[in-house]
Design a protein around this nucleic acid. Structure first.
Length: 297
DNA sequence: GGGCAGGTGTAAT
DNA sequence: ATTACACCTGCC
């Protein structure tokens, strides 16, 4: 059975893949009406769906693709990884539900997990994300992959390597609609390619040191650095504050009063501790669902 | 057309 | 340590 059904472990596939932490997933509807996520993990094109029985890895996903998916979704990693505990999602959500605000939100967002993504891809993806919106971010990344990524067949391309991206002609980047972010992307790629930014080395640094190292790259500020730490480097205590999370925290915890970035970070650390990253995911999802119009609550 | 979108760099306070 | 502004681009 090369493509088994995997225990969901409390993971809600759709909520997780659509939560804004990854940009290369597409959804298709199968003949029986079920929804199938199609994505690219490294050099593997993978297809996956979920129903009451669990998470199904679907053809033509290879065995290697299946393994990549298990790691990516953090399935079967109930115990220690990289020296830190990764508790099962239901246990995490039970802990978060001690907070009355999250207890109210969780029914809408339960199952939103943190992915274990490739740091290089996350660095570039979130540099592109600044002052941008999700459809446009996804489009730019898709353009980059087509222009510079290894072809994997069927018109699908891997994410470009640092070397290829660093060597890309400005004209090529221009065609990816990166706008003023193009020089940031290029410089980030150069630094990863030549070792000035050693992403693997960041894994063993204290969180603050790793954030400082990331912030040295032009185009990476506090928010993008936090996203990289949370979505690719396993730092679940990190609390990226974007406009949506800010809105959610200020309205739900501070009666709509404006708080400084510093206050918001301190709040998250005190309130959610090592699970702040998960709390952020829930607050973000809820805010996007309910605060679309800045006037309503 | 002006404003905004999952920020950041820069200059000024 | 905070605040104001510009910024590619696509969309309303």
């Amino acid at each position: 059975m090369p493509l088994p059904t995997l225990a969901s472990g409390g993971l809600h596939l759709r909520r997780t893949l659509d939560s804004g932490q990854a940009f290369r997933w597409r959804w298709e509807t199968s003949p029986d009406g079920s929804e199938i996520a199609v994505g690219i993990l490294g050099r593997h094109r993978v297809r996956v769906s979920q129903d009451a029985r669990g998470i199904h890895v679907l053809p033509p996903t290879s065995a290697a693709g299946r393994d990549a998916l298990v790691g990516y979704l953090a399935l079967g990693t109930r115990h220690r990884r990289g020296g830190s505990d990764r508790a099962a999602l239901p246990a995490i959500e039970s802990a978060l539900a001690q907070d009355p605000v999250l207890a109210r939100i969780l029914p809408h967002t339960r199952g939103t997990g943190l992915l274990v993504q490739n740091p290089w891809e996350v660095v570039i993806s979130f540099i592109i994300s600044q002052n941008n919106n999700i459809p446009k971010i996804a489009r730019s990344i898709d353009h980059l992959a087509r222009a510079l990524g290894e072809p994997l067949g069927d018109g699908v391309h891997a994410f470009p390597t640092p070397e290829r991206l660093a060597a890309a002609h400005p004209r090529t980047l221009r065609a990816c609609h990166l706008g003023y972010r193009a020089p940031y992307v290029r410089e980030g790629a150069r630094r990863v390619a030549d070792g000035r930014l050693d992403l693997d080395a960041l894994r063993v640094l204290p969180e603050d040191r790793a954030r400082d190292a990331l912030r040295e790259v032009p185009g990476i500020g506090d928010k993008v650095a936090d996203c990289i730490l949370l979505f690719a480097l396993g730092r679940a205590a990190t609390f990226p504050v974007d406009v949506w999370v800010r809105r959610a925290v200020e309205r739900l915890y501070f009666r709509g009063q404006r708080r400084s970035m510093r206050e918001l970070r301190a709040f998250a650390r005190e309130r959610f501790g090592p699970l702040a990253g998960y709390a952020q995911q829930h607050l973000f999802a809820y805010a996007r669902g309910h605060f679309r119009d800045p006037r309503d609550s």
